[in-house]
Design a protein around this nucleic acid. Structure first.
Length: 281
DNA sequence: ATCCAGGATAGCG
DNA sequence: CGCTATCATGGA
């Protein structure tokens, strides 16, 4: 039986934070979610303006969920326009969390040309099949396999998790990281630009995935991953009527227009557009 | 059935 | 350079 402790969480929405396409393994359970933070089994539920979390992991969870981000101050730096206003209203309490770099990188390596729902299925399959089983009372979750562990897996076994052509990249990157080719912890102390270049040396990592990892794991809140949805928002809202805006123009616009926390603004736009316009096209 | 999905990359002109 | 075809799989 886990003893839950209430932790103050103002300006926070657990469901929006865990289900907005930045992290993919949290599973609805009871009134909350079960998952893992690194190798720790964690259950989370929201009650009003606080979250309930296993007492021994309260500090870990608060850091993971970025409850210390000054969210109102961050939101105030966004430009004031109709698209941002409606996205902020829609995504109230959404925070960009601090994921462990390896599992964030590995998960986004399985993301190209996949829907959020499928990325989630792949992530859970890899955890269940190759990760460590974490159990406490009624709660159960699986940790993400470490680079060394993943590097040992045969390609055919990995393919059973329905990765398709992404499996080769995940395996190759796991081997490089396991061999010390890129020190993911050391990237914390590099500039965003340097870290991006180093991440892009990994097989299967281009600028978009590198930006996802910078934003969702390394707290580089200015990094803007431009995927199909953000491309749509930018085209339809900020470049209305213009056909085929070059990607480099979208990038420079995002870096200049959305401000110091452009990555945060991007996530609100992403979440709003994906959910609101998914079914109508 | 046809098109699309939190893209990256080799190969082309 | 920039542009294009292609990659594996399941959802809409």
């Amino acid at each position: 039986m886990i003893r839950l402790r209430a932790v103050p969480a103002p300006h926070f929405n657990l469901e929006k934070t865990l289900c907005s396409g930045q992290v993919f393994h949290w599973t609805p359970y009871g009134r909350g979610f079960v998952g893992a933070i690194s190798e720790n089994l964690v259950y989370l539920e929201q009650v009003g303006a606080s979250i309930r979390v296993p007492a021994e992991h309260a500090k870990l969870a608060a850091h993971y969920l970025a409850l210390d981000h000054p969210l109102p101050a961050i939101l105030q730096t966004f430009p004031d326009d109709p698209a941002i206003r409606v996205a902020l209203e829609f995504g109230q309490g959404l925070r960009i969390i601090r994921q462990p770099p390896w599992e964030c990188l590995a998960t986004f390596l399985t993301s190209p040309l996949k829907q959020v729902q499928q990325i989630q299925a792949i992530s859970l399959a890899i955890r269940k099949r190759f990760g460590r089983r974490l159990r406490c009372g009624e709660f159960e979750a699986f940790s993400y396999p470490q680079p060394q562990e993943l590097a040992e897996i045969r390609l055919e076994k990995l393919l059973e998790c329905k990765l398709g052509f992404r499996a080769r990249n995940l395996l190759a990157t796991a081997k490089m990281v396991a061999a010390g080719g890129v020190d993911l912890e050391a990237l914390r102390h590099r500039s965003a630009e340097e870290a991006r270049v180093m991440l892009c040396e990994l097989p299967g990592v281009g600028e978009k995935i590198a930006n996802c990892v910078l934003l969702f794991a390394y707290e580089r809140l200015e990094a803007v991953p431009i995927d199909v949805w953000i491309g749509r928002v930018l085209n339809e809202v900020y470049f209305t009527g213009r056909a085929k805006v070059p990607l480099r123009e979208l990038k420079s616009f995002s870096a200049n227009y959305f401000g110091r926390y452009a990555g945060y603004a991007q996530q609100y736009l992403f979440h709003h557009w994906r959910l609101k316009y998914r079914r109508r096209r």
